[in-house]
Computed example of a mutant assay.
Amino acid sequence: MTAAPATVHAVRTEEDLLAVRHAVRAATLDAGFSIVDQTRVVTAASELARNSYIHGGGGTLTIESPTRSGAAGIRLTVRDEGPGIPDVEAALTDGFTTGAGLGHGLGGARRLMDEFEIRTAPGQGTTVVATRWAGR
């Protein structure tokens, strides 16, 4: 299996959110993910992209296909240039919301992925890097 080149997708409109879901689903299929893992990764991507769109004023989602010890993976990098997350730990807590949502987005996305990192600073935007490995 040859790793696919990274692809970058704009997250600027509602239509982009749908396009991101389709692109991530295709990447999980190409990587040989089970239907359960496909759903996990697509759900996480949807939550992260929506956060970027709503709270960060839009940004990009990059899809990469790393391998580790022969295992296929999907790495999502979501970047925006919004206001940043003032309190990351609070934002990861279930029930925390700055809008009308249920407050499961960021923490839920973290639980769906195997690796999860947030880099953010006030006024400098947010970058989330999340990776899921097939068969975990």
Rank of each mutant, 00 (worst) to 15 (best):
A26K: 03
G107S: 08
L106T: 02
G56T: 07
P5D: 12
G58L: 07
L18C: 02
T97P: 01
A109Q: 11
G58E: 12
M113L: 15
G70C: 09
G99I: 03
A26I: 02
D87C: 02
L18D: 11
A10G: 11
N51Q: 13
G84S: 09
H9C: 02
V128H: 01
T39I: 04
V78F: 00
L112P: 08
L92V: 06
G99Y: 02
H104P: 02
E115K: 05
A10I: 01
D16K: 07
G59E: 12
R136C: 13
T2W: 10
A49D: 02
P122S: 05
E81S: 15
G135V: 05
G95W: 03
A3K: 14
A6Q: 13
R12K: 10
G82E: 14
I74S: 07
Q38M: 05
D87M: 01
W133C: 06
A23F: 09
G108S: 05
R136P: 09
H104F: 15
G101I: 01
T77W: 01
V129P: 02
M1W: 07
H9I: 03
E117P: 01
G32N: 07
T13V: 13
A134D: 13
A27R: 01
E15V: 09
H22G: 12
V42Y: 12
T98D: 07
G125N: 02
D30M: 10
G123I: 11
A4M: 14
S46V: 00
R132K: 15
H104L: 14
T93C: 06
R75Y: 01
G82K: 06
R75E: 04
D87G: 00
E115I: 07
G105T: 02
G107K: 08
W133I: 08
R68W: 07
T28L: 13
L102H: 04
A23V: 07
R111V: 14
A6T: 14
T28M: 13
L102V: 05
L48H: 00
V36F: 11
I63P: 05
F33I: 07
F96P: 00
E47T: 01
G101W: 00
G84R: 09
T13S: 15
L112I: 14
V24G: 05
L29F: 14
A26E: 10
D16Q: 08
T93Y: 07
G56M: 08
A130M: 04
H104C: 06
T97M: 03
G123T: 10
T98V: 09
V8M: 11
R110M: 14
E15W: 06
D80A: 04
S69L: 12
T93R: 12
V36K: 13
W133D: 10
A26H: 05
A71G: 04
H9L: 15
E47R: 03
D87S: 06
R25G: 03
A109S: 15
E81V: 07
P83T: 07
V41T: 10
M1V: 09
R40G: 01
I85S: 02
